[in-house]
Design a protein around this nucleic acid. Structure first.
Lengths: 256, 256
DNA sequence: CCTCGTTGGTTCATTATTTACACCGACGTT
DNA sequence: AACGTCGGTGTAAATAATGAACCAACGAGG
């Protein structure tokens, strides 16, 4: 395995719950030798990707990440563009709205806005969304560059819930349906009780670069509710694509 | 050299001006072989740290950084805490206010707010501030853990402008003065025409973890102006330290 | 007070990974 | 048509990563 890749994978063990990890724990979690993990952490600390809590010696994500994020945001202000759109979307639909962009082999959740109602879907900040098991992933993949789509179809498709597509054909079928109607549906394919609707965000080349999605408790799903969500989602995605400097391809139509 | 470190150093060639870099350029800039750079970039792309523009094959910072930044922000909401403080500070002083945290061997600029007046200091988003050559760096180092301070004193001190401290003794002298009066001054030590005033931000252990600073055009410096800036800076830093979950040590006093 | 099981961290010989050179086809200019 | 660039590939050589054993320090339990 490549060392750089392994080192960066260590960062994936930090979640919104687990914000600090000790050396031994991280070695156990990753299956890599303690000495190796330590050296990787020290290397990454040099660049500010991680830092060590001097009190308990445990490691956490570093401030250098914020620096790079600001740099990227200065080059391409996605958060600034997407946040107001997500807020309106959450307000109009009364459901949790989130946006994600391709990041490595998954979609990276880069913005969430929750509605005010009590019964709502919670989505971890910074969650990685698998391409085959989420509405966002399907919406993205169906409209991504052909190479990307083929790559996803060629992967192992782990079952996350009972309804996650696990065969190549099953996924292909879902993708063509998504392509036809212009949006994606995920009925508890990633998390039980959660129903997702998503539409692609397009890059300058007319291929998908991410997705805009609304997640609702499965118990609240109904045709009128779904229609209402799509009615809000469609213009929001068009605006977001435009704001990101992308271009919606001519053939893209959202039809329920 | 460690591979991981070299790979991550590649990211430092991206600035707010240079947002995309081609393979050959990056190899030249870093002095690393083209083939090696390519493999490192591909490894980092796997985790979403960089991504390749499919149109021109050039590389840029990836969306995975935003994901990690959100994760860190969820664990410790520094940006949310600091932004309103910076805004007030910029408003009160009429000068550019910025905050930075330790990231690897430098301070990482993680927030800037500019005043409305025309003649103001511009600070690049995501800039890395050298510890020995900026007001923020001095304020941080003077109140950092002793090991940290010694490490900085033991470094090579590159001259960035004519007034940058370059000898161990010169820097030590500046640090003791900073420690005595509670704030740091940098008269064009990093950039010509820019005068900086900075105070430390403290972590939970009572040692500095970053700095809060105001930068003003050198032409506008005067004693009353400086006193005014410090009068705004002191309470702002106290509030910021508190907001970040830190603790101001008892002995810290700001005395002009 | 001692043992036991942790922890974070260090060492060093072995080896597997990274490295750099030469090379490739494609594109743009001259 | 020749040249210079580009991004990317394959190879053999060598460097850098690896992991087992080992430390000292700490805390819990008896």
């Amino acid at each position: 395995m490549r060392t750089v890749e392994k080192a960066l994978k260590l960062l994936d063990f930090f979640t919104d719950k687990v914000t600090e990890i000790g050396l031994s724990d991280l070695a156990r979690l990753s299956g890599i030798d303690k000495a190796t993990v330590l050296r990787m952490l020290q290397d990454m600390a040099e660049s500010g990707f991680v830092e060590q809590n001097p009190e308990n010696k445990r490691w956490r994500l570093g401030a250098g990440i914020l620096r790079l994020a600001r740099l990227r945001e200065a080059a391409q202000p996605v958060t600034r563009v997407l946040t107001p759109i997500l807020e309106r979307l959450a307000g109009e639909t009364g459901e949790t709205a989130h946006a994600s962009l391709l990041s490595g082999r998954d979609l990276a959740n880069i913005g969430v806005v929750e509605p005010t109602r009590a019964n709502r879907v919670y989505i971890e900040p910074g969650l990685a969304l698998p391409l085959h098991a989420t509405a966002s992933g399907l919406a993205f993949t169906a409209f991504a560059r052909p190479e990307q789509r083929d790559r996803v179809l060629g992967r192992k498709l782990p079952a996350i819930t009972g309804t996650t597509p696990v065969t190549r054909d099953g996924l292909a079928e879902m993708l063509t349906r998504t392509e036809r109607r212009g949006f994606a549906v995920a009925d508890q394919t990633f998390e039980a009780e959660v129903y997702g609707l998503a539409v692609p965000l397009f890059g300058p080349d007319g291929f998908a670069c991410g997705a805009l999605a609304v997640a609702t408790p499965a118990s609240r799903v109904s045709e009128p509710h779904e229609r209402g969500i799509l009615a809000a989602l469609a213009p929001a995605a068009a605006e977001a694509t435009l704001g990101l400097g992308g271009r919606v391809p001519a053939h893209h139509r959202i039809t329920y």
